[in-house]
């Protein structure tokens, strides 16, 4: 399952309203909830928080990829959140994080999960593309950019 095939306006939120890490995780999971992609908010949030507790998924360059396995989902789910002003996410370089990709996958679909994470890692290498996403005016523009339309 390619990331591009998961794209839809309802899984994108820009700008995020959260100001700190715990809130941004909640807000990202809420995007999935509001979009009807999950029906167990607490279970998914707990799985994502548990992974973050081990080490932040905030990478260099203002990108974070919070992810987790959860039996609450039956297929790979993704939410994208954008915070143009940046949020302290305990990133590796200490800089504020602006672009968040949340991925939640069922435990028995490791292959597609790894593939999607690898695609996001690849996207994150393009600073110009990430900048374009961060500067997008709305969810529709993010979807357009991700799909390459």
């Amino acid at each position: 399952m390619a990331v591009i095939e998961l794209m839809a306006e309802e899984i994108v939120k820009t700008p995020l309203t959260s100001q700190d890490k715990p809130d941004v995780l909640r807000e990202l999971v809420q995007i999935l909830m509001d979009a009807g992609r999950i029906d167990n908010f607490d279970s998914v949030l707990s799985a994502v928080q548990e992974r973050e507790d081990q080490m932040s998924t905030g990478l260099e360059g203002g990108i974070a990829v919070p992810h987790a396995k959860s039996a609450s989902v039956d297929s790979l789910k993704m939410a994208i959140g954008i915070a143009p002003a940046g949020i302290d996410f305990n990133a590796l370089d200490g800089n504020p994080t602006k672009l968040f990709f949340l991925l939640v996958a069922p435990p028995d679909k490791a292959g597609p999960h790894v593939q999607a994470l690898a695609e996001i890692a690849k996207l994150a290498q393009s600073k110009a593309f990430c900048r374009a996403l961060i500067n997008a005016e709305n969810a529709a523009e993010v979807v357009e950019l991700m799909r390459g339309d």
């Binding site: 998924t57 990478l59 990829v65 790894v114 593939q115 994470l117 690898a118 996001i120 890692a121 994150a124």
Partner: peptide
């Protein structure tokens, strides 16, 4: 792919 994710510090 998993080695790449480890290198990228996602894993």
């Amino acid at each position: 792919a998993m080695e790449d994710l480890l290198k990228a510090q996602i894993f």
